[in-house]
Design a protein around this nucleic acid. Sequence first.
DNA 1: TCACGTATAATTGTATACAATCATACGATT
DNA 2: AATCGTATGATTGTATACAATTATACGTGA
Lengths: 231, 231
Amino acid sequence: MASSNYDVKQEVNDKYSLRGRVFCKIREDILSGKYREHEELREVAIGEELGVSRTPVREAFRQLELEGLIQIVPNKGAYVTGITAKDVEDIYMIRSLLEGLCAKWATDHITEEQLEELEENVYLADFHAKKGHLDQMAELDNRFHQILYESCNSKQLARLLEDFHEYVLRVRRKTLANGGRGKVSNDEHRQIMEAIKEKDKDRAEALANRHIINAYDNMVKNGLYEIYGKE
Amino acid sequence: MASSNYDVKQEVNDKYSLRGRVFCKIREDILSGKYREHEELREVAIGEELGVSRTPVREAFRQLELEGLIQIVPNKGAYVTGITAKDVEDIYMIRSLLEGLCAKWATDHITEEQLEELEENVYLADFHAKKGHLDQMAELDNRFHQILYESCNSKQLARLLEDFHEYVLRVRRKTLANGGRGKVSNDEHRQIMEAIKEKDKDRAEALANRHIINAYDNMVKNGLYEIYGKE
DNA sequence: TCACGTATAATTGTATACAATCATACGATT
DNA sequence: AATCGTATGATTGTATACAATTATACGTGA
């Protein structure tokens, strides 16, 4: 599962280079929760763990800082950024608008192949929802949105949404594992897919908008973001 | 003028440290057009120019890559990213939505002081518009939007908008220097300010939306983005 | 003349060494 | 006992050295 989540960065940051590997590894460790919020990351420790010197680690840190995953205090250290409840709410509201725009643009630019993959995705997800296969559901959900990003014909928007998508991974993973939402979420995917298929871009936009808001509401309803600080 | 544009990054990247200075300097040189699109940036050359070694330069490169200003090809080099006409269009459309959201949120959270500074800003800009003071107009325009970013009560949204705001600086600067738009733009600022003052968040959102679209339309109308490639 | 391969130079990638800064602990002074 | 100052250790910041990779130039062969 992790593979598809981080592949996204390959273009800008090929993970087969040392630096790329270091970057991806630290990022994965943060997103997976291995490094906790406000934890201090030491250059040598991480370097030794990954078998590299401080240099690649430092460069990875600079990037992670700009991604917002860590915060570097000059001459002091690097600390894992805490995501507050407010941050999560903001990001979902922003994402709602952007996913809507993405769906609208995708309606104009999606290819036959991409549309078919969307249909297949929804169909498969239906199956896994019935079976209760949470990992596959998460994977398919990722892929559904990824297809839309790819088909919106905008590198700028795609880059932005990919960043957000990953940023809330810590939260989102827990959300999908929650009862019922997987099925409902996929129904919303189907509606979005059908709107795009019928070239109704305004409906696609509105549905995508709603889809993200619903995901957020569901998260709040289940108190899933109490895990984050109130600050 | 440059000072206020780059101050924004101070928080994440204090410019009084060596690395911060290097980062800001290179960024400024790219935004100002000193380094042209697709130009290759060599670590030693820039290091010598700034009187530092390759290490801080490399770290700055990593950040600039993530900001989208340069692209690093492994084992080859760092190249200034070209902004295409399509990129500019996309960014304005995205910004339109986000500036709208920002204005909406600002309506709820703006303080008396911030509102007063907005009023003062609009009043002053009116004066400079009549006098044809383009530099001051640009400065006030930056500040107007910056105040909104600060008053929207969302670090996430503010960070995003600040990034975009800077990203299109190369374009925007030319736009404002264009006849008439300065005055019209400030009129739109006034309307937005008044909507916020009257706590009409939906109107503020719609006006802010429109404000960015208008800026873009004006740019297109004047053929100002022909300077970028068509790719 | 053109194509290919090798050698050399240039540039980036990584590791290490040293300098500067910050945190901690201990002791002196009040 | 509490507080301040200093000393020591730990950590980051920067510079440099070396390795790996890539680009260029030249020469050889067809």
